[in-house]
């Protein structure tokens, strides 16, 4: 399969190395891209711990856990696909990739159900946002209505608190939590969609027997991307769903 070496590379080894390194560098930029959202999350969770607890409690831990397992399984499939392609089993690789794609779609489906639930409960940030502590959480926070907020950390932060009841203030802060929730999971879901398309193309090529021990770069590289999306979720899950 020497036809796979582009004109400007010397050999397949160099080409594989370049593609692999290129994907890793791309993933470094992705780490910084998602990382910025995690940074926003960190700042606000530090400022409004109680609102984050309250918001987190309204998320469905069971769905989140299932989704994490689904995504981990898809990663396993991708790893097995790379293994299969590298050991001259291109058709098997295609099978594993289809498995990964199915898991990805399942993940997106569960996510869609969760989103629909948020719309139904008016938990989507914007004009219609509503959040009532009593009716929402199974766990009311410490029974007390005082919202401990590092007000001084926010320029003008006490301005709203001055005109509103603690519950109203909490509702605002929870809206902030949900803004982050939708920004982060939405961006993640977008990456999932891109990943599904990517794996679809590679799976088709694998089914046609395009990959072998000497050439499986696309499987490896798109696999790296998929694993990365999985890793983002590995952090999103505890940070969004499991706050006490």
């Amino acid at each position: 399969m020497t036809g796979h070496v582009a004109h400007h590379f010397d050999d397949a080894e160099q080409q594989f190395h370049a593609a692999n390194l290129g994907m890793w560098i791309f993933l470094a930029t992705e780490v910084m891209f998602f990382g910025s959202l995690f940074a926003a999350y960190t700042a606000y969770r530090y400022m409004f711990p109680e609102a984050f607890v309250a918001g987190s409690h309204s998320l469905d831990v069971v769905m989140g856990t299932i989704n994490t397992a689904v995504l981990l399984l898809s990663s396993l499939f991708v790893a097995l696909a790379v293994n299969a392609a590298a050991t001259n089993r291109s058709r098997a690789a295609a099978g594993f990739l289809v498995g990964a794609i199915v898991m990805g779609v399942v993940f997106l489906g569960i996510k869609a159900v969760e989103y629909a639930d948020k719309f139904a409960h008016n938990h989507v940030p914007g004009a219609h946002f509503q959040f009532h502590r009593e009716s929402e959480g199974e766990h009311a926070v410490d029974g007390e209505h005082h919202v401990s907020v590092n007000e001084s950390a926010i320029p003008g932060g006490d301005f709203q608190a001055g005109h509103n009841s603690p519950d109203r203030t909490l509702e605002k802060r929870v809206e902030l939590f949900f803004s982050l929730y939708f920004a982060m999971t939405g961006l993640h879901a977008l990456h999932m969609v891109i990943g599904v398309v990517l794996l679809g193309i590679v799976a088709y090529q694998a089914w046609r027997g395009a990959y072998s021990q000497t050439y499986f770069t696309p499987v490896e590289v798109s696999g790296l991307y998929w694993h990365f999306v999985d890793i983002v979720w590995v952090f999103l899950f505890p940070l969004l769903y499991l706050i006490r």
């Binding site: 390194l21 890793w24 560098i25 993933l27 470094a28 930029t29 992705e30 780490v31 910084m32 990382g35 910025s36 995690f38 940074a39 960190t42 700042a43 530090y46 400022m47 590092n150 001084s152 950390a153």
Partner: peptide
Amino acid sequence: AVAAGFVGLIVLLAFMMSDYLTRD
């Protein structure tokens, strides 16, 4: 390359939080 992104993220988090943690 694997480490680069995470190191960059730690810099962002550490220095940004150095502001929030000391605003009081």
